[in-house]
């Protein structure tokens, strides 16, 4: 077991992207091991979200590669990244606004549904069986964040905090191995943040997934992340344990200026 634990679930090698002449991210290396919670921090405009976009196939890297369980994912499309096992949430919440809470989660099951057009048109037993099973699974997932009562509400009618939670639930529904959270606590008050922290821990324990987290809320990052990587101007300036990062002069300089 000790041996298998050393194989990183996600690995990037010299990952980089340039937009025209602008180097947004360069030489980005990260290893995430199963079950780990890694934080990615940096000042505004440091390239954190660009890294996320590279890790989910929204941008195609101009150099380097992304490996998930040893499989190279370069050049694949976003949904293929998701199929491989990387799911994400967005900095500005992106829900299916006109669909119900339940449908939001069900939509994320789409890639795992095996019935075809024939089953859908003639409502075969297979169709009903699949739909019923998925309904139950979706309600089960919603209950993690206590959203099961809201299953039939329209997603855009939920309060902000619950929309965040629904977005995480939807990401969980893709059955991924690595979850990328882009500023999950943005716009939340301390109580909501504490609640979110609890939820993140509980989903980690329940699903045994690895999480990569972008966050500005330092107390949250320092509290729950096992390792932290700091980037500034697209370059990694420090990585290590939270205590080390907090004392690192380069990090302090990047955040506060010299």
């Amino acid at each position: 077991m000790a041996e298998t634990k050393r194989i990183p679930i996600l690995e990037t090698k010299k990952l980089g992207i340039t937009f025209g002449g602008l180097v947004a991210v360069s030489d980005f290396n990260i290893q995430i091991y199963p079950g780990e919670l890694v934080g990615l921090i940096g000042p505004n405009g440091a390239g954190k979200t660009t890294v996320f976009n590279l890790l989910t196939g929204v941008y195609k890297p101009t150099e380097g590669s992304v490996l998930l369980n040893g499989e190279v994912l370069n050049g694949k499309k976003t949904h293929q990244f998701v199929n491989a096992g990387i799911a994400r949430t967005f900095q500005n919440i992106r829900l299916f606004r006109q669909m119900t809470v339940l449908e939001n989660v069900l939509a994320a099951f789409t890639k795992d549904i095996s019935y075809n057009m024939f089953d859908a048109l003639f409502r075969t037993p297979k169709f009903w069986k699949t739909e019923k099973a998925l309904h139950e699974k979706a309600l089960d997932l919603l209950s993690i964040f206590h959203l099961e009562d809201k299953a039939d509400s329209i997603a855009s009618s939920l309060p902000y905090g619950q929309q965040r939670k629904l977005e995480i639930t939807r990401a969980l529904a893709t059955n991924m191995k690595l979850l990328l959270l882009d500023e999950p606590a943005a716009g939340m008050n301390p109580t909501e943040t504490a609640e979110l922290l609890e939820c993140i821990n509980s989903i980690r324990n329940r699903f045994g997934i690895a999480i990569l987290l972008i966050e500005h809320d330092m107390s949250l990052v320092m509290n729950i992340c096992e390792r932290i990587q700091v980037i500034d101007y697209g370059v990694t300036i420090a990585e290590g344990l939270p205590e080390e990062i907090a004392k690192n002069p380069k990090v302090i300089a990047a955040y506060l200026g010299e």
Partner: peptide
């Protein structure tokens, strides 16, 4: 309908848009 509401989120949910 997911694609209609948000195409980026749809593909990030594993839907082959």
């Amino acid at each position: 309908r997911a694609i209609r509401d948000d195409e980026i989120a749809a593909s990030a949910s594993g839907i082959n848009t």
